[in-house]
Simulated assay, not measured.
Amino acid sequence: MKKIFTVFAFTAFFALNAQETANRFFYELTFKPKKDSVKLDKVMTILDITKDKSIYRDYTSVAQDSIAKIYVEEMKKSGVYKDPTGVFTTPKFSFKVEKSYPEMKETFVDQIINGFSPVSIGYLEEPNFNWNISLEKEKIGDYNTQKATIDFGGRKWTAWFSSDIPLQDGPYKFKGLPGLIVKVVDSENNYSWVLKGNKKVENFEELSYLEKLVPGSGGKLTTVSREKFESTFSSFKKDPFSSIRPMLSQEMLSQKVPGTDITIGDMVKKQEKSYREFFNANNNPIEIQQDTRKNKE
């Protein structure tokens, strides 16, 4: 990972490489998955910035892109299903946050299953970040930063931004400060992001290999109100395969997956268990209170 570009270098970077290069900022996220536990977890997240938008997400899937490609190609050649358990690391978070440039309107995106295909669903939002900027300054790693505070999503947040990096952006939904956010943490230490570095990504592609491979994954986005999104996603978490189950006959469930001794029914049960474990692993959301101002249907 390289050090942050100077203002001149960053401006030149976008002017010369706007169509095919992104600047990837790496944020280490330390968080408390369970609200009644003291245990903390860590994951690397990324903020990819192009001239048109920024995309915040868990880095896990992106980091495994080359492994996924080899794995899938081997299955294609052999015609035999290979259980990915133990091969890939499951991301801690499945959502993305996109911010359009220069308006900085935000889109929160996640996925549900409809029938046999994943579907991207999200909501548009323009959260009102009225930061209180302090005169207090601090050196964080290589970055000269300044303090700002805000109440957002039911939590009290302290951010440290660097005016040396002329981007009004940051991890997750955070934005609107006169410089890139280097660190942001809530008052009870449930969530803390710290910028660890950045690098250029040549020939940047927004979708990962698996997103491009699986129909509907990362494709056309269905946009709803935040209330509708929350209710739809809540139902999905309770029963991830509710839309698939009526389509599976007993005959189909008893059939073997090609090249294996595993039945389709067993595979469905295993995948459903994986979904439930994923959702049950975190009951301490970043936002514990919705800001529904300016949400759009």
Rank of each mutant, 00 (worst) to 15 (best):
V119Q: 14
L177R: 03
Y209H: 11
F161I: 05
F10I: 03
D41L: 11
T222D: 15
L248G: 03
P102C: 06
D110Q: 07
T263C: 07
F278G: 07
V184D: 04
T145N: 04
I286D: 00
S37P: 11
S134P: 00
D261S: 15
K196R: 12
T292R: 12
S235C: 08
V184Q: 05
T158C: 04
L195C: 11
K228A: 12
P258L: 09
G153I: 01
K32N: 05
T21Y: 15
P178K: 00
T223C: 03
M104S: 13
F25W: 15
A148W: 07
Y59P: 00
F236R: 02
P127G: 11
K51F: 10
I181Y: 08
F161G: 02
T263P: 04
V43Y: 01
G122I: 02
T11H: 11
I121A: 04
Q146F: 09
P127I: 07
K200C: 08
G216R: 07
D239S: 14
R155V: 09
S61A: 15
N280L: 09
I264H: 06
N114K: 10
T292W: 03
L135S: 15
E227V: 12
K105E: 12
A22F: 04
T263H: 01
T90G: 00
D36H: 09
F31G: 06
A281S: 14
T50R: 02
G259C: 09
L210D: 05
V43C: 08
K228V: 11
F129N: 05
V80E: 13
N23Q: 14
I288W: 10
Q271S: 04
V97H: 03
F229D: 02
T260L: 08
N190H: 08
N203R: 08
F95Q: 12
G219L: 03
T158A: 07
P178V: 04
T222V: 09
V224H: 03
Q64H: 08
E126R: 05
S61Y: 03
S163D: 15
D48W: 02
Y81G: 07
F95G: 06
K296L: 13
L221C: 12
R245F: 11
K296H: 03
P171H: 01
V268F: 13
E211T: 07
V72K: 10
F241W: 03
M75L: 06
E287W: 02
T260K: 12
K82Y: 08
K256E: 04
E74P: 00
F10P: 00
P258A: 02
T90V: 10
S54Y: 02
N283S: 13
